[in-house]
């Protein structure tokens, strides 16, 4: 059998058309995927970086926003600070107070001490010493 008759008899047209379509579509899909690969990777990298900021590790200090919130509520935190420093005695240096705040992991110790001074919770006791407001 020869010619068109042979092609028809052996299903040649279907094989040729299906084969050509399969290889074209397969490589087109692969081409599309690899054309987007670097974009997908860049997106994943970006998301990873954003994720790092959103979920800090436990050892990291509290964000500034949270510290600001605490500072605005100094009155409620004051008793906490005072209780933690009872062993320092009635008068203490700001250096000792800073060491206690650091030991207790209070956020932003410098800023907190400054705020406590400005708000009058820490009062000068003379000779560079300070004491808590009565």
């Amino acid at each position: 059998m020869y010619g068109i008759q042979a092609i028809n008899a052996h299903n040649g047209w279907s094989m040729a058309i299906a084969g050509a379509l399969i290889v074209m579509s397969g490589l087109s899909i692969l081409s599309f995927i690899i054309s987007q690969l670097h974009n997908i990777l860049a997106l994943m990298e970006k998301k990873k970086k954003t994720g790092d900021i959103d979920a800090p590790s436990a050892t990291e200090s509290m964000p500034a926003a949270m510290a600001d919130h605490d500072l605005s509520n100094l009155e409620s935190s004051f008793s906490c600070y005072r209780d933690e420093t009872t062993r320092l005695g009635s008068a203490f240096t700001l250096q000792d107070l800073f060491a206690v705040f650091q030991k207790c992991d209070f956020p932003h110790p410098h800023l907190t001490i400054r705020s406590l001074k400005e708000e009058g919770y820490l009062v000068p006791a003379g000779e560079g010493m300070f004491s808590w407001k009565k």
């Binding site: 020869y2 010619g3 042979a6 052996h10 040649g12 047209w13 040729a16 084969g19 050509a20």
Partner: peptide, 15 residues
């Protein structure tokens, strides 16, 4: 490849 497939079939080769 597919053009030659048709040509070979037309010339009497088995699939």
């Amino acid at each position: 490849i597919y053009f030659t497939l048709l040509s070979a079939l037309a010339l009497g080769f088995m699939p």
